[in-house]
């Protein structure tokens, strides 16, 4: 379970301080699908980065399964990325010089696990990309890239999937498919946190958290 207590995060720019998160407290239960919505610039990405462990809050506590993530050292952080949380990005972030198979193997490589092409094909089937294993990212459409990214997250077998506007660069149909896949991940037992500013998509979640100027409003 993820528990945030009074999280604050301020970006220090040259001439001003931007208070991106200002006292966020929330709980995200295991196996839930949570949507985070809010206007652009309200701190959604900042919040997600903190949950993912990429960024650290200036103040406040981040408890993951009751352990204080604030105090993790570098090794614990790496383990955290390997086995606990993974992020899906609006820009997909596939490595351009690797084909789909190899991109999907990336988390396995760092987890020191192996999977042959057949097993990966099964995962690709789940996300509707069967037969695209040898394609390179530049040969795929946006929706396909995002599905490859989803497959990459799936094989990583992390417990929490964070998606930062995964549908932002996609058309409605593709967006809908991606969200359905995310729902599938939840059925699979993963905890999914979905950032979106699309109302319809947010409605598919178990719970909606709305941010405004670094505060939780609902």
């Amino acid at each position: 379970m993820i528990k945030l207590v009074d999280i604050c995060r301020t970006y220090h720019l040259k001439n001003q301080d931007v208070k991106a998160l200002d006292g966020i407290s929330l709980e995200i239960p295991d196996g839930s699908l949570t949507a985070i919505t809010g206007h652009s610039g309200c701190g959604k990405t900042t919040l997600l980065n903190i949950i993912a462990g990429y960024d650290r809050p200036d103040s406040g506590l981040y408890l993951y399964d009751g352990r204080l993530v604030n105090d993790y050292d570098e090794r614990q952080m790496t383990d955290f990325y390997r086995h606990e949380v993974s992020m899906i990005f609006q820009e997909f972030h596939l490595l351009p010089y690797l084909n789909v198979y190899e991109n999907i193997r990336l988390p396995l490589h760092y987890q020191k696990r192996r999977m042959n092409n057949k097993e990966i094909d099964a995962v690709l089937g789940q996300v509707g990309l069967r037969g695209y294993g040898r394609f390179c990212p530049h040969q795929l459409s946006g929706g396909q890239k995002q599905r490859a990214a989803l497959a990459r997250t799936l094989v990583g077998e992390v417990r929490v999937v964070l998606a930062d506007e995964p549908t932002g660069a996609l058309d409605r149909e593709n967006a809908y498919n991606i969200v359905k896949l995310l729902k599938g991940m939840k059925e699979y037992g993963m905890t999914v946190v979905l950032v979106t500013h699309d109302e319809d998509i947010a409605m598919m979640a178990d719970r909606i958290i709305t941010l405004e100027n670094g505060h939780v409003v609902s």
Binding site: H93, L94, L95, P107, G156
Partner: peptide, 14 residues
Amino acid sequence: SYEIGIKKVMGASA
């Protein structure tokens, strides 16, 4: 650094 970032997200240690 972008690629390094992706790898780290995928669980690559320093």
